[in-house]
Design a protein around this nucleic acid. Structure first.
Length: 364
DNA sequence: TGCACCCTGATGTT
DNA sequence: TCATGCATCAGGGTGCA
């Protein structure tokens, strides 16, 4: 079957590193392999915190991303508990992305451990793409020492669901004519973009799997989820997705959030924390030569409610003092309105702009 | 009235 | 049960031509 002369579908590959953070740690300390490994984000309140991710041995015991560390310790008392080491994971991620770039110029890094690769121009039939995927998996295994799961489909949506279909160390190829058959029996929460909340609402409508979802009319879905999401669900349920694989120009926002040592509304303690976050944000902006035009203060109160206060500047800024000054104003305004103790505080900058003077010659 | 932008909270994932 | 740290998105509000 030839694609080049018909050009009716694309060939998209999605790579998803298996239990990434935990696998990185296994590579660094081979002696922990085979034991349950739990990667933790500690909040700084003793053993309090949440599980970032875990390996399959730990998952079998019920230890999965997002659960409290205290619960993880009850479920898997003999597991290896390690703090996150983002520096290591970023460095390994860079190595994987370098390999991926050898397979296509068109790649889109989706997160630290996932990426899309558009093979349409490289290969014109799915069997060839499958051979490339086997080669890619092997190269990552040899050079980086980690396994990954790969999905291949006629678009990003299907490729991503396919990579998730058979893990770890899996390879799933979904040809255009197999899309409906592949998606139909899957749970609605297997669909990218359908999480717990949306899943519950769909369950309420009698939808159990993607085939059920595809039977609902666009009107019914729009009535429940409003226009944009309704249309998207209708299309996605039939495996339709036109979004291109494109290099991400970087994130649209940069944020940092921390948990305070104890719940408080003491201005000095909150200012100290906010200053520390502002310095971190400043360093991230500097590293990427960006300035910002809007800034938010994020407050999670003692009752775990999230609140935000934001401010948009008339001109962009980048210096640490500006971040701190605006952040302090937002903190004051928030506390004046909310008589609550805060558990976590965060700062986020958005409307990011390339620093002036960083333009390339081509733009002149 | 339509549009662009802003602010906020919900959501998804780890 | 106890509950991190990020990013993205959608909906409602507001101001302006």
């Amino acid at each position: 079957m030839s694609n080049s002369n018909e050009n009716k579908f694309k060939i998209i590959l999605h790579v998803d590193m298996d239990y990434f953070f935990a696998q990185c740690e296994e590579r660094e300390n081979p002696e922990i392999k085979g034991k349950p490994v739990v990667i933790c984000v500690y909040s700084g309140r003793g053993d309090s915190g949440a599980v970032s991710t875990s390996n399959y041995e730990a998952r079998k015991l019920g230890v999965k991303a997002g659960i409290p560390i205290s619960l993880a310790k009850k479920l898997a008392p003999h597991a290896i508990f390690l703090p996150v080491n983002m520096e290591l994971y970023h460095s390994i991620s860079d190595d994987v992305m370098e390999i991926l770039k050898e397979y296509s110029e068109k790649i889109e890094q989706e997160s630290i451990d996932e990426a899309f690769c558009d093979l349409t121009e490289k290969i014109n039939y799915f069997e060839g793409a499958k051979k490339l995927a086997i080669q890619l998996k092997d190269e990552i295994k040899q050079k980086v020492g980690l396994t990954c799961s790969v999905g291949i489909g006629p678009n990003k949506l299907v490729a991503k669901i396919a990579s998730d279909h058979n893990k770890p160390d899996g390879l799933t190829v979904v040809r255009p004519e197999e899309v409906l058959q592949f998606l139909g029996p899957l749970k609605i929460t297997d669909m990218v973009g359908v999480g717990k909340k949306t899943g519950e609402r769909l369950n309420y409508l009698g939808v159990k799997n993607i085939a059920d979802l595809s039977k609902l009319t666009a009107d019914e879905l729009i009535r429940e989820f409003r226009h944009a999401k309704g249309i998207w669900l209708k299309q996605a349920s039939r495996g339709i997705d036109d979004s291109p694989v494109e290099e991400r120009s970087g994130t649209g926002q940069i944020g940092r959030i921390i948990t305070l040592k104890e719940n408080t509304r003491d201005l000095n303690i909150i200012y100290d924390a906010v200053d520390q976050l502002s310095n971190d944000i400043h360093m991230k902006l500097q590293a990427r030569k960006l300035s910002f035009r809007s800034i938010s203060f994020i407050a999670i109160s003692h009752d775990f409610k999230t609140h935000t206060r934001s401010h948009t500047l008339t001109a962009s800024a980048k210096d640490p003092d500006s971040i701190k000054t605006y952040a302090h104003e937002l903190v004051k305004a928030f506390l004046a309105e909310h008589p609550v103790d805060l558990r976590r505080v965060g700062i986020r900058v958005a409307n990011l702009e390339e620093e002036k003077g960083q333009r390339t010659l081509g733009e002149f």
